[in-house]
């Protein structure tokens, strides 16, 4: 089983590269063949990824959330899966390239550095932790997708303002649609992050005796959550729209990245497991 897993680990990034390749081809050529086949390939890539994750869980007797490279492969799956659902729901096919490329990066890094982790800390075997990590990852996937749509919004906004009617103008949906997609992704991300935080608060006292609510990772996550909360409330209650909202989303995403980098690699925390 382990050797099958190793082969899958090699093949999986190739699947993602092929998928992003056909999305890239379609972005530049817009043929009906590539437009239809890219979705089929993405579906098979996701199917293969599910198989890989299940195989990994069975082989090592724990869900693949116990080290940073396992987290990366789950994140790669979550981002592409969320995009796949969005594409099916909205039939907007021109933005996939910019989102699946994130999965390609995460999966490639994961496949290169991932180790066979048979022994894991006892604290990482909790079911609550599984739910906590899964909802956090899906939440981060949501805000990542929100930021990508926000970024595409800003590019298209600038192109239209400057009378540049190139490929982005051709392939992207309307500004309003991009704003909507960014908003919906942010809402989903925010809800799932909220779930992750609630589960974390429940699980924390059970798992650690020396925990602190002033832990850098908790503060970072709280800040990201707060920023998105303010942004979403401003849109829903304050009638914010357009550029202001998507800039908020992008700042939130950048803060989330900065917070993750600082708390995972620089700060000492009880919350660092790897």
């Amino acid at each position: 089983m382990i050797s099958t897993l190793h082969i899958c680990n090699l093949i999986l990034p190739l699947f993602y590269w092929a998928t992003v390749g056909i999305y890239l081809y379609d972005f530049f050529n817009d043929s009906s063949f590539s437009s239809n086949s890219k979705r089929v390939l993405l579906f098979h890539t996701l199917l293969f990824h599910v198989f890989y994750l299940i195989l990994r869980t069975i082989a090592f007797d724990h869900p693949p959330i116990t080290n940073v490279f396992e987290i990366f492969t789950v994140l790669a799956f979550a981002v592409s899966f969320a995009y796949f659902i969005l594409e099916l729901e909205t039939d907007i096919r021109g933005t996939g390239l910019f989102i699946i490329i994130i999965s390609v990066i995460f999966q490639t890094i994961s496949s290169i550095f991932i180790q066979d982790e048979t022994v894991v800390k006892e604290v990482l075997r909790s079911n609550l932790l599984g739910s906590h990590v899964l909802s956090a990852l899906l939440g981060y996937s949501g805000i990542t997708i929100s930021a990508v749509y926000g970024f595409l919004y800003l590019i298209l906004y600038k192109e239209i303002k400057l009378n540049k009617f190139g490929l982005i103008f051709e392939r992207m949906p309307s500004l309003e649609k991009l704003e909507q997609l960014s908003f919906y992704a942010a809402i989903i991300g925010f809800i799932l992050l909220s779930v992750a935080i609630i589960i974390g608060i429940i699980w924390l006292p059970r798992a650690f005796k020396d925990y602190s609510y002033l832990d850098p990772k908790l503060i970072g996550t709280a800040l990201v959550w707060l920023l998105y909360g303010i942004g979403l409330a401003s849109k829903i209650l304050g009638g914010w729209h357009g550029k202001r909202v998507v800039i908020f989303s992008i700042i939130g995403f950048l803060l989330a990245i900065a917070s993750t980098l600082v708390t995972n690699f620089l700060a000492k925390s009880f919350h660092s497991f790897y």
Partner: peptide, 9 residues
Amino acid sequence: QLIEKIFAN
């Protein structure tokens, strides 16, 4: 056409 690139509906 340009208006449709700005507004969705």
